[in-house]
């Protein structure tokens, strides 16, 4: 497990990252969410070691990360960059070898990844001649080429079309084994919602919410959507133990305060035929808005 404890970074008298603490669990995708300038990139740069923290630690299974461990991380920086004039294959082989792969192993691994990314035809092409989407694929491949022990991806999907995102996610899921913690930042909440197992929400340099995404969504008052076969829902407002958040015609969204769902259903059913009675999970966007409010 990768843990960040009280990580702090000041630039002059501005505190970009303020005592940030969270865990990135192995085998799970952890979404790192926050507005621009919330401190996501600064935190990630400190994790991979290209920026020194003002204070705080990055831990690997509870002990401070060593240089060697850190170097086996995979990193995709927010500002993309590879060698523009180097061929796709040479590029990946070079990075694999920097991480300690032998030349033949590096070559084999680079070919394997490029094939999986559908770039086998382009191995000998100079990077800058590839489309931006394909350059992005090579960038992900560069982060994965040495079979990293942990992955830190800064906005990995920005600029990709939905199909490319899917194929990239597919690749990540294949490549990331049960031991590898993955942290990726994104401002696309729907994407994080769809992909992430865990969520860390950052606001103005501080962690405001962190944890299992499903658990977070289930937190707070329980909501149900009710749809009647016919008739109006207005009368629900007079029922005790619930609050009607929204009622329009035959549908309503209610929050249960001290009424059990089964009792609510019985009460409704007594008056009308019910076509839908379902719990509503809070969307991440709502959790996010609440957290940073």
């Amino acid at each position: 497990m990768l843990s960040v404890t009280s990580l702090t970074r000041r630039f002059g008298d501005r505190t970009a990252v303020d005592a940030v603490t969270f865990d990135v669990r192995p085998g799970r995708l952890t979404g790192f969410v926050g507005a621009n300038g919330a401190g996501k990139t600064t935190t990630m740069r400190m994790i991979v070691g290209v920026l020194g923290p003002t204070s705080g630690d990055v831990l690997w299974h509870g002990s401070p990360l060593t240089r060697e461990q850190r170097r086996s991380f995979g990193y995709m920086p927010e500002e993309r960059g590879l060698y523009p004039k180097m061929t796709v294959l040479d590029q990946l082989v070079f990075f694999a070898r920097l991480h300690g792969f032998s030349a033949p192993d590096a070559d084999r691994r680079a070919h394997e990844l490029l094939e999986r990314l559908g770039l086998s035809e382009r191995t000998g092409d100079v990077l800058e001649t590839l489309s931006l989407g394909n350059q992005q694929r090579v960038q992900i491949a560069a982060a994965l080429v040495h079979r990293p022990m942990a992955l830190v991806l800064d906005e990995p999907f920005s600029g990709l079309d939905p199909i490319a995102v899917d194929s990239m996610v597919g690749l990540l899921r294949e490549e990331v084994t049960a031991e590898v913690p993955v942290l990726f930042s994104s401002h696309q909440l729907d994407l994080v919602e769809r992909l992430c197992d865990d969520v860390v929400i950052l606001s103005e340099g501080r962690v405001v919410t962190a944890g299992d995404a499903d658990a977070l969504r289930r937190e707070g008052p329980v909501r149900y959507r009710i749809r009647l076969a016919e008739g109006d829902c207005g009368w629900l407002r007079e029922l005790d133990g619930i609050r009607v958040l929204d009622a329009e015609g035959s549908t309503a969204l209610v929050e249960l305060d001290d009424l059990a769902p089964a009792d609510l259903l019985t009460a409704v059913h007594a008056k009308h035929a019910v076509t839908e009675f379902a719990p509503v999970v809070r969307p991440l966007s709502e959790i996010y808005k609440e957290s940073i409010a």
Binding site: G49, Y75, P77, G81, L98, H99, A142
Partner: peptide, 13 residues
């Protein structure tokens, strides 16, 4: 300029 330095710095001393 190509920002590759960020990946290099993360990978090697």
């Amino acid at each position: 300029e190509s920002r590759v330095v960020e990946i290099l710095a993360a990978a090697v001393p």
